[in-house]
């Protein structure tokens, strides 16, 4: 029997691990996002790039004038701008990733029913999850790279280890995108979606972005240390300062777990929503 190209492609995966949930084509889902993105509002995209710079100039250089330098341990003394720059880098990776993986995903599930269309093809739910999370990650990555290209010439990263802040930003963006999408697939209303915003801002303000956690009582510190952004900031700051040690592994592990859980629950939920 003569088979179509689509059938031949799908049949080539028979017997492969996870063939029911994964067809090996998340890039086609990302391609869709790219095409839609080309005609989207650039001003919105640009605002995500500019935001951390605003913080850097107002706090880093404005407030920094009064603060002077910060002692970050291990004999490092840095300007206040250099202290907050890695935190802003980590935060911009987070914000970029959250942007596409939450409100945009919510809209696609509830109103555009995009995933229903995708899952009627030979794609599987893990393709959709990876494709969407991958796209969201790219935005976080782009913001982090953009921010880095501004702060390096300003002398805010003076250490070659600082290059590792870029792969770290990918890891951070991946983790936030995965968890962001997973949570979104369980949301039912815009009120619930707004809760995400309500959590994000305080997390940014209190996760050691602007001053060390030591200002807080012990129990508050413990809570903050459980939050993902603290791990992200600590990881990126250590890299930009050149504090490389095995002590960074728990932060990396934290994000690997986030990625795993995010992918797992997103795939599971997409299956429940559109395939049973």
């Amino acid at each position: 029997m003569l088979v179509s190209a689509a059938v031949a492609i799908a049949d080539a995966r028979i017997g492969k691990y996870g063939e029911r949930t994964f067809s090996g084509r998340p890039h086609t889902v990302m391609e869709r996002s790219y095409i839609a993105f080309k005609s989207s509002a650039w001003i919105v995209v640009l605002s995500g790039f500019v935001e951390p710079l605003l913080y850097l100039f107002s706090f880093g250089y404005g407030l920094g004038k009064f603060i002077g330098t910060m002692n970050v341990g291990h004999g490092h003394v840095v300007t206040y701008a250099a202290y907050i720059a890695p935190a802003l880098l980590a935060t911009s990776a987070m914000n970029g990733a959250i942007y596409d993986s939450t409100f945009n995903v919510f809209w696609k599930i509830k109103f555009d029913r995009i995933y229903e269309g995708m899952l009627a093809t030979s794609l599987g739910p893990l393709d959709v999850a990876l494709g969407e999370i991958g796209w969201a990650l790219l935005r976080g990555f782009a913001y982090a790279v953009g921010f880095t290209t501004v702060i390096v010439p300003m002398g805010l990263i003076q250490n070659w280890w600082g290059i590792l802040a870029i792969p770290a930003a990918v890891l951070i963006a991946f983790g936030f995108a995965a968890i962001g999408m997973a949570i979104t697939t369980y949301m039912n209303s815009f009120q619930q979606m707004n809760m995400i915003q309500v959590v994000m801002l305080p997390m940014f303000l209190f996760s050691g972005s602007f001053y060390p956690l030591s200002v807080y009582p012990h129990w508050t510190q413990e809570i903050i240390k459980a939050l993902p952004l603290w791990h992200a900031i600590t990881l990126v700051r250590s890299l930009t300062l050149g504090d490389i040690s095995l002590g960074l592994l728990p932060h990396i592990a934290y994000f690997l777990v986030m990625i795993f859980l995010g992918l797992f629950f997103t795939t599971r939920r997409l299956t429940a929503l559109f395939m049973r």
Binding site: S4, V7, R13, E19, R20, A120, T121, S122, G124, M275
Partner: peptide
């Protein structure tokens, strides 16, 4: 058991 393979044969107009 073979969702993606079967869907490759189908055109769906919901």
């Amino acid at each position: 058991l073979h969702g993606p393979q079967i869907r490759a044969h189908l055109g769906v107009v919901p």
